[in-house]
Computed example of a mutant assay.
Amino acid sequence: MTEQLQERPAVERHDFEYALIRAVPRVERGECVNVGVLLHCRWRGELLVRTLLPEAKLLALDPRVDLVGVGRALHGIEAVCAGGAAAGPAAGDSPGQRFRWLTAPRSAVVQPGPVHTGLTEDPQAELERLFAQLVA
């Protein structure tokens, strides 16, 4: 029996970097909840973000967590990702520079996780996949 191999069209995949955004209601305890994903795709010059404020999970870790403050921090991250005037001092920075700034280690209630890499055909679809798998 002869099997014919069908040639698949070449799919162009490009590198991307991503990091989880974590809420750590009590930094001294180190317990965290994933609240978002940042994704930087250099070849498209894109910095994407998707966030979620899981109030019940955060309150389970610390009944006194400042939910309004966490929400404001997430909105700030979204503004920096969007660029423009809403990004404040980072407005003139490239998407890569803004990604590096957002993923710099910090001891705060909202902080980035480690940066990971991958290959993708579609950065937006990759963001949605990561968000569904790691946050939602």
Rank of each mutant, 00 (worst) to 15 (best):
108 A>H: 14
124 Q>G: 03
56 A>V: 04
82 A>V: 03
94 S>W: 04
31 E>G: 07
5 L>V: 14
128 E>F: 03
67 L>C: 03
4 Q>K: 13
17 E>S: 15
126 E>R: 12
116 H>Q: 15
85 A>R: 03
47 L>P: 03
63 P>F: 04
48 L>T: 03
59 L>H: 04
11 V>A: 15
95 P>E: 05
127 L>Q: 01
126 E>W: 00
42 R>V: 06
37 V>I: 13
122 D>W: 04
22 R>S: 14
56 A>F: 00
100 R>F: 01
88 G>W: 09
7 E>M: 09
7 E>W: 07
29 R>D: 12
118 G>A: 15
91 A>R: 11
24 V>T: 14
40 H>D: 05
92 G>M: 13
45 G>F: 00
62 D>I: 06
26 R>N: 11
36 G>D: 03
81 C>I: 01
31 E>W: 07
113 G>V: 03
130 L>V: 11
132 A>S: 11
82 A>G: 09
3 E>N: 11
136 A>E: 10
25 P>N: 06
4 Q>A: 13
5 L>E: 09
100 R>H: 08
75 H>P: 00
15 D>F: 14
114 P>L: 11
42 R>T: 07
65 V>H: 06
35 V>D: 09
25 P>M: 09
45 G>Q: 02
100 R>M: 03
131 F>M: 06
69 G>D: 12
26 R>D: 13
47 L>Q: 00
38 L>P: 05
36 G>N: 03
5 L>S: 07
15 D>S: 11
37 V>Y: 02
107 S>T: 14
91 A>Q: 11
129 R>F: 13
59 L>Y: 02
70 V>T: 01
52 L>P: 00
18 Y>F: 15
39 L>C: 04
127 L>H: 05
53 L>A: 11
32 C>I: 00
37 V>A: 02
71 G>Q: 06
135 V>L: 10
39 L>N: 02
88 G>S: 10
129 R>E: 14
15 D>A: 15
28 E>K: 11
27 V>S: 10
104 A>F: 12
78 E>F: 00
67 L>K: 05
111 Q>N: 04
92 G>V: 12
112 P>G: 07
62 D>A: 10
65 V>T: 06
9 P>G: 14
46 E>K: 08
20 L>Y: 01
101 W>T: 13
78 E>R: 15
93 D>K: 14
27 V>T: 12
18 Y>M: 08
63 P>A: 07
31 E>F: 08
68 V>S: 07
15 D>H: 09
83 G>Q: 01
10 A>M: 13
55 E>Y: 00
6 Q>D: 11
94 S>H: 10
19 A>F: 08
29 R>P: 04
56 A>E: 10
48 L>K: 01
49 V>C: 04
110 V>E: 13
86 A>D: 08
90 A>Q: 15
114 P>Q: 13
70 V>D: 05
11 V>H: 13
10 A>F: 14
14 H>P: 02
83 G>A: 01
81 C>H: 04
122 D>S: 10
46 E>Y: 01
108 A>C: 09
30 G>K: 13
30 G>W: 09
127 L>W: 02
33 V>A: 09
80 V>A: 04
32 C>K: 08
100 R>Q: 12
82 A>E: 09
43 W>Q: 08
121 E>V: 12
132 A>I: 00
56 A>K: 05
26 R>K: 14
122 D>H: 09
21 I>A: 14
104 A>V: 06
27 V>D: 07
33 V>K: 08
15 D>Q: 12
102 L>G: 04
5 L>W: 06
56 A>N: 04
92 G>D: 09
30 G>R: 14
72 R>N: 07
46 E>Q: 14
